[in-house]
Write a protein that binds this DNA or RNA. Sequence first.
DNA 1: CATGAATGAGCATTCATTCAT
DNA 2: CATGAATGAATGCTCATTCAT
Lengths: 185, 185, 185, 185
Amino acid sequence: MDKRQKILNAATRLFVERGFQNTSTANISKEAGVATGTLFIYFATKDELINTIYKEAKQRMAESLKEGFPQGAATRDKLKHLWTEVAAWALDNSENFRFMHMFSASPFITNLTREEVESTSSFAMQSIKDGMKNGEIASIPIDLFHSILDGFLTGTVRYIAANPSKRKKAIEASFDVFWNGIKGE
Amino acid sequence: MDKRQKILNAATRLFVERGFQNTSTANISKEAGVATGTLFIYFATKDELINTIYKEAKQRMAESLKEGFPQGAATRDKLKHLWTEVAAWALDNSENFRFMHMFSASPFITNLTREEVESTSSFAMQSIKDGMKNGEIASIPIDLFHSILDGFLTGTVRYIAANPSKRKKAIEASFDVFWNGIKGE
Amino acid sequence: MDKRQKILNAATRLFVERGFQNTSTANISKEAGVATGTLFIYFATKDELINTIYKEAKQRMAESLKEGFPQGAATRDKLKHLWTEVAAWALDNSENFRFMHMFSASPFITNLTREEVESTSSFAMQSIKDGMKNGEIASIPIDLFHSILDGFLTGTVRYIAANPSKRKKAIEASFDVFWNGIKGE
Amino acid sequence: MDKRQKILNAATRLFVERGFQNTSTANISKEAGVATGTLFIYFATKDELINTIYKEAKQRMAESLKEGFPQGAATRDKLKHLWTEVAAWALDNSENFRFMHMFSASPFITNLTREEVESTSSFAMQSIKDGMKNGEIASIPIDLFHSILDGFLTGTVRYIAANPSKRKKAIEASFDVFWNGIKGE
DNA sequence: CATGAATGAGCATTCATTCAT
DNA sequence: CATGAATGAATGCTCATTCAT
């Protein structure tokens, strides 16, 4: 693996384990097996490193959502697909997911990052808008919908992380709650 | 106001504004209008200060939830009460609420804190268990319920914070989604 | 006991146990059972406290040497008396003795202190000078004699502190070595 | 000269001049002409720095004692050699010697240090034991002997430091006192 | 005299970042 | 590109000392 990737991986691991402030760039370099100076060849600052991890994780997640997305299907099926995929991705990439959570709550997130990222999930948002238009789901402000969805998924994944054996059931159960709430009359 | 409280307020303000790591104890003391050493009379370490802010905020919120809680009412009304109160509290104490969010996602939270805090919302959890028993709401693992509720509320409040004018509407709308999802057959 | 004395005692105990730099005035006040400010009523600064402990200890030691000093006796008997008394005092006041040792090696000792103290043991020095004059002991520079004596006693006491059961024997043995070395032809 | 050595030298100088507690690591770095952080590359803590100075000084002294040590000679000659060498070393390295004195009386000395160091002077101790066995010197507890010797030398060196012009004479005089005391019947 | 909360200069140590090799 | 010794500003925390009560 190239050094850039080694640094990214080591940094993610350590940030999640010890938090941003308790992980020094020296820690990361050591964990990655490179010299302290090398980190700064690939990332101008520690902040840039952190933002990069976030952006790339979000991107990889978005890509995995797109795969097999049932474009023509009913809104319920589309949402179910997204639901399942997000949960799967979060559980299979728990370090990355936890990192994203930490990051969202931190003041690191720059406006630039926010914008770059939001576009990646636009295709999902489009499905929702379509569903609202044709009455398949209830009409509520799209931003509120987004926030609720985000909170919902985070809650579900956090639950599964603590109770891994109930993965399948929990995904179904929470989707049902979600769908019952969201669906049109 | 006493110095302890001044420090607590200044710290909350700065942490929310700049994050934990970008707020030095010297910054806090200055903002609070006390000497650098004074902070350490009331809080042994920076960590203890952070944990204290969290505990006290959570406590105040729990207290405001209890006021006017409709003990004998239907589960829906109880939940509606909680929903409205949490949202109100979060919006009227947005700094505290944002702090709690930051804190939950950080590695600062110690086990002690976690335990001390969890007991404060037990009365709400009891209502939910009761509702499940008598069929008013669907039966899903209580922990999952908790996680979903948490995510839901966070999402709602975050939305309202960004769109203050839609406060009333958003609270109603998100509760409807929640209730439709959660209610028994 | 009055507060001044309580502070002096507590300070001696803590200094010996933890060193000067690891003993704060707050530690001392607490150990003495007085308020932090009280210490500064009796001693203007920490340094003054330290110097006072030294002076008073040295004085008490000198007084105990004077008691029963055989003024008219042969130099050997005078020295033996001093020898025995110093050892006894050091062992019965080991905290004070250890303090004096620490103090001598530190940069705390001010010229003032040094002078005030040196006069206290002048009567012993006089005996030695007399002994040299009349040939009872060998003629070597008085300051060198003083230094040797000091080192000698310190060594003896340190040995006895580590081997308390051999107290009597050690005092005899070391005096013999000393006297054999020192005596005139 | 390498930076480690520069730091060691500067620290020794300042510690002797101003004491441990009145010498900050910043003082040392400045005196050594390096950045404040550099000190901590070579020494993890201030304590470690202090212990290192002691160990290395003691080692260098032991080495200089070994040079030209008259293995086969009479005990008196061996002791005279040690005596002369210690005095010479102490006077030529007065800063180091004074440091060792300060250090011995401080609570800095860790057990580790003590052990590591004691082995360095074992060859001298062996000579003494041998001398006692064959009656060349009086039979007294070896530890007491050690303590006396230590105190004796310290006293002598301190005297010479204060009276440099009398160096030769003082060494002879104090050794005579010592030898007359110590020698067998 | 006695108290102890408050002060703020000072300290040991850390760490993001640089740069000569 | 890669290294890692070196940098020095910044930080959390301590503590001798003061002073209003």
